[in-house]
Write a protein that binds this DNA or RNA. Structure first.
Lengths: 335, 335
DNA sequence: CCCGGCCGTGTTATCGCTAACATGAGGCAA
DNA sequence: TTGCCTCATGTTAGCGATAACACGGCCGGG
């Protein structure tokens, strides 16, 4: 159906009312310099009177560029992607862009490629892809040249714009915080190892332990869910030598806390726990969770900046921005 | 390499390669009946060979309708809206529609109207508005006629398509479950009262208590956050007569659980708690949370159905669909 | 005093598609 | 055979914008 029952006013209608040519209307709309102030006002008045709004499709057709930005994200309620999307849309709207989403159930190459395709069909002016695994990154392989792309938490070796959270630094802060509290070593419940995020956190954790000369226990591999954290916790809770655990995100920590509780291991008295993400609930777990906070809004903004830069200058080398996370100390680490 | 400049192949390029007119290509693309099978195949081959993809902007321009659906949602990581968006995008993609998002920081009329406007600029073919407050609904007042709109959890008295979760039934199930467990009455920590969701849950809770002849304590007003649940819990924990609490969502319950824990009130032995939403973490709280699960995917699907129905027949009365939530019994209610 | 350049504006040509009408080849009833 | 209708396809005319060029009037410099 039409957006209006009949098609609404077009540029020529405005032009007729203002007594100018449609081209002059176009100039007013696009803030061209050479329009007399008086004419400009007359045109604006006509626009207001008719309630005219420019037809983006027509503009897109003639310019070959839309005012649409595409986001490819994981179809999930994972805190990171959801926060990112919200922040990105907000920033994009302020910059005059609309945002279209294509979500993906799995991060395999085909799914991502299909989502990207849907966006290309829409002639998006640029693409933000949350591509936290190598397989997701492969979905970008067949991308036609000339489409500005920024990946979030993607492969640093691909030739796209890239925004990442400094996972290694975040993990280091968490691990060091636990070591500083006097723990001999720190165990780690990791995210899915094919995620760059998870890999970075593992690396930061491991390197920190090594630098401190601490033993590096085998990481407990999980996904991002509370269920997996609970499962990991059931195992770790039985091991008396485990006194400090760094989990790859807060949901894992939540599951872990429950498992520790059930086994009668007190947090932080018996076991210290540090999470990652700082979900809004983290401060209200039992006990309040010490965690690492990545600034998702900053990531989204950085992504938009990179995208706009690529759109402005297609030949420039795509930039990379790293956002530093911050340790938020609460009450889940013994002192 | 390129067919014409950098704009990629157009319909005429396909036509030339297939030895037909561009109109025939159009007919093949749109599955028109009167095309010889042989021609159809030749055209498809040409499309594949050139990697041609139709220009949606041109199609939108000439037909006056886009293949874009707009979603207006709250800029937040609230579980409900986030789940809905994800499910909706998935369903829309399968139906051949792209989804553009406009999020809103506050649910006041101006913000919602601005978000709607952004979508109208894009000539969306239909609109889904998550409008859980009266003020948000007002943002739809100035909508031009002819735009198919479905609101989610919106005002039942507005003349739009509407999908709601049966909040009253959900709250009744939760409250009744607590009464059945032997509690004399049930306290309620409510969501923001200007939300229809919150109002419905309050109503279901109150009516259930009244029907059972139980005393109706004053609802404790909160927002949707764990922080507010914690604050409410600090108060309720001090009142020995409080033995059963129904919270308007799971995050509130999480905060409440922590407050009860700190005051030494055991759940479910001393106090029973029931939440709402069934976030993935609910099963891993201390103790596992009994809660009410609305099927967000079903809501999203229903919304899309309603939208497509309106688009197919603009004169039909907009439908309303109510989705029944389900009580998920875990371990936070004494037996 | 004349001429070139800038300013403000109009005219025309696309962009890539679909809708509407045109065309021509067969098939079948009269 | 003569229409006339049905396929299968082609031709033409926009949709509503921007881009490129055209065109007078006014300005300032030689």
């Amino acid at each position: 159906m039409d957006i209006r029952g009949s098609r609404g006013p077009a540029m020529t209608d405005v032009a007729r009312l203002a007594g100018v040519s449609h081209q002059t209307v176009s100039r007013v709309l696009n803030d061209h310099p050479n329009v007399k102030e008086q004419t400009r006002l007359r045109v604006r008045a006509a626009i207001a009177e008719l309630g005219y709004r420019p037809n983006r499709a027509a503009r897109t057709l003639v310019t070959g560029r839309s005012q649409l930005l595409g986001v490819v994200t994981l179809n999930s309620t994972l805190f990171g992607p959801a926060s990112l999307l919200a922040a990105f849309e907000q920033a994009a709207a302020e910059a005059g862009f609309a945002v279209s989403v294509a979500s993906v159930v799995r991060l395999d190459r085909e799914s991502v490629a299909a989502a990207v395709d849907r966006h290309l069909d829409q002639r998006v002016a640029g693409l933000v892809v949350i591509a936290p695994t190598a397989s997701a990154g492969e979905g970008l392989a067949a991308l036609p040249a000339g489409v500005p792309v920024v990946t979030i938490d993607g492969d640093p070796n691909r030739a796209h714009g890239l925004v990442t959270v400094d996972q290694v630094a975040g993990a280091r802060a968490a691990t060091q915080h636990l070591l500083d509290a006097g723990h001999r070593t720190v165990w780690h419940v990791s995210g899915p190892p094919d995620w760059y995020d998870a890999a970075g956190r593992i690396e930061g954790w491991r390197r920190t332990l090594q630098a401190a000369g601490a033993e590096v226990p085998p990481p407990v591999q999980a996904d991002w869910s509370a269920a997996a954290g609970y499962a990991a916790g059931q195992m770790l809770a039985r091991m008396p030598e485990v006194t400090a655990v760094f989990t790859a995100n807060d949901h894992l920590a939540l599951g872990l806390l429950r498992a520790l509780y059930e086994r009668g291991r007190r947090v932080p008295e018996d076991v210290s726990v540090v999470g990652f993400d700082d979900v809004p609930e983290a401060a209200f777990l039992i006990p309040p969770l010490t965690t690492v906070r990545p600034d998702f809004a900053a990531v989204a903004l950085a992504g938009l900046d990179l995208l706009l830069a690529q759109m402005a200058d297609a030949d420039a080398a795509p930039g990379q921005i790293v956002v530093e996370p911050e340790l938020v100390v609460r009450n889940s680490v013994r002192r």
